[in-house]
Design a protein around this nucleic acid. Structure first.
Lengths: 370, 370
DNA sequence: CTGTTAGCGCGTTCAA
DNA sequence: TTGAACGCGCTAACAG
């Protein structure tokens, strides 16, 4: 009998009774110290501690106030893969930096398939969501929109009325391809990241391109194609090998091998991410090809590792961390932020595509820290 | 007037009325489909959708059920640094893998200083906490314990009654030092990670060691000292340079430079983490020293990058991902798990400490994927 | 299979 | 400054 009472958790009311005050007073002692005399507050807090009461129950408070103090983050990939990708990690860094500043927590919500998405997104106690690189018709998007909470999208999807942060993938990719073409590399090969959600690895046909659901990959391909076409080459004849993000560098290695064993062998490789480019670098080495002499390689993203490998990697630098920071700031209502941000990118030329000797081609970032 | 009613969010009751059923029925339609006829369920769901009702309010449900479907994770470092450290990231991968499997969300709780910790930990709506590498007397520990929820500690703190996952740091470090000594490297230098919370970088004196609050670092030092003493050398004469985790490879570079410029120059460097060892590798290169001929280097942790750099890094491999997975499994009540796990480590010898030529010394992991 | 009845623990009026 | 009352939206018993 007594046990059952002792068993249940302590509430504001218990503390109030033990301290000989009202519930409101105890609540105020925790939340509004200015609303009661310091001495009373001291006493209440002391009694609370004695009873093992650690402050208002967060669920009850959330229900009452409608605020949770957390924001939700949804990745398109399986979480372990997302945490394996330097691009996602950099994004996470940006988000977390802002969260830490404003004392908000960050809820990572698994939403891999529609089943999981439905359950986890509906249950998430958050004040808003960040959608990171989510295909437009994904179940996750529907569920998030249903929640009627503030939303910010990064990279994808672009939806009416919700803030968006991204880059001009097409233009950036065009710059990358132009660079290679300007070095007179006319036999190009493309290593692509996921166009679809099916973890497919291998050559890409026009049909697959046309039905692509990941915008980044599609737009980057468009950009490559723009430059290639302008150079008087038929872009549909440029071979594309797709290697899913989740296959990491190893997958890219295989894709690059496939590309480099074609005849004529490509003299330039356009990789849609730096991870893919690293695989290409390794493949070239494996085949005994010199980079950039035999084959030049250009990546995309500008992850820190790109500057540190040898030969250092030419890439399109995009503000990865800043993307996360801006997304969080918008969601958390930090003022002076427009709601749509197309961030700048820039081509960083390093050894993997330099004209001269390896040493000479080093970009300014080489040797800088982690 | 009407506005104010339209303004507020839709509840179970609204749906019930609109559908002409009771609240329970609507609740069941969402949570227990087996408790009502399919047709009624269809109808209720249809009405709900029409009203823009997206399922039960998560806060209310949490209050009612006492379950949140999320677990909290607390790092000792500032989040952006944690997300920059391959060791933490690998841990996160392990945690997230399990979370995804059981459809749990993961709440990353900033708890940098005591102020923030108090607020964020008290407010966190979670079913339990994972403490990752938190100093024993940290405010965060107190707050977490106060919450009276299940807790698991990883690496630190070791507290009575709460499950613990870690490795035998001392023994592992001893193995690393023994390895170097067995190669006849008798002039050693140590690069240490944080002993204290103060971001200090520089030489370490006995006082600082004695008052260390980070167990990992301290135990690793003990292990080194054990082996060194057994080799007939006075461990207190072995120079130690501390470089905080947050300073990354650059900090380690500086620390290693300091070490390598001493007389006599160390012929072996013991680094307490692979990141630190990478800095040492770079420092050796910078000074024109050959690794392992002039100076042999041994890291700790076994991060993937250690196998990929050249020369590849000898290290103590610990099951980083598994640590996270086990922690999450224990917290989420997945059965067949003991509550305390001291995981195995092993020395992986690679080029950075090999006797023979560089090629010969490559560990089996070299060239394997990301 | 459906409806009724009770709280879950708290924050906020408002009056004292 | 304090105390009483109300309801946030929901789920779990239990009765029909």
């Amino acid at each position: 009998m007594k046990q059952s009472k002792a068993r249940k958790s302590i509430t504001l009311l218990d503390v109030a009774r033990a301290a000989g005050v009202s519930r409101t007073t105890v609540s105020n002692a925790f939340n509004r110290p200015d609303q009661l005399s310091p001495e009373v507050q001291q006493k209440v807090l002391a009694v609370a501690k004695e009873l093992g009461y650690a402050g208002p129950n967060p669920m009850a408070r959330m229900l009452r106030t409608g605020q949770t103090g957390a924001i939700g983050l949804i990745f398109s990939e399986a979480l372990p893969y997302a945490f394996n990708d330097p691009v996602s990690i950099a994004f996470l860094q940006g988000v977390s930096k802002v969260c830490e500043r404003v004392k908000a927590s960050l809820l990572i919500v698994p939403a891999l398939d529609s089943d999981v998405a439905q359950q986890t997104i509906q249950q998430a106690a958050v004040d808003g969501f960040i959608l990171y690189c989510i295909p437009d018709e994904s179940e996750a998007v529907v569920r998030v929109l249903d929640r009627q909470l503030p939303v910010v999208a990064v990279d994808q999807p672009e939806l009416k009325g919700i803030p968006f942060i991204g880059i001009d993938d097409r233009q950036a990719a065009r710059t990358a391809a132009l660079h290679l073409l300007s070095l007179n590399r006319r036999h190009l090969g493309i290593i692509a990241m996921d166009f679809h959600n099916d973890s497919y690895a291998g050559p890409v046909d026009p049909q697959r391109l046309k039905s692509a659901i990941f915008r980044n990959a599609l737009h980057r391909w468009w950009g490559y194609a723009d430059a290639i076409r302008d150079a008087g080459i038929d872009p549909t004849l440029v071979p594309i090998e797709e290697s899913p993000n989740s296959n990491g560098v190893d997958g890219a290695f295989a894709a690059a091998i496939a590309l480099l064993q074609r005849h004529p062998r490509p003299t330039g490789i356009l990789a849609m991410s730096d991870i893919l480019a690293l695989g290409a670098l390794r493949a070239a080495e494996h085949l005994g090809l010199k980079v950039p002499e035999d084959v030049a390689i250009v990546g995309f993203d500008g992850i820190p590792l790109a500057a540190q490998v040898r030969p250092a990697l030419t890439t399109i630098q995009q503000p990865l961390v800043e993307k996360g920071a801006i997304a969080a700031e918008i969601l958390l209502g930090i003022p002076n932020k427009k709601t749509t941000h197309i961030l700048e990118t820039k081509l960083v030329v390093r050894q993997s595509s330099s004209k001269g000797s390896r040493e000479q081609g080093a970009g300014s970032r080489v040797g800088s820290g982690e």
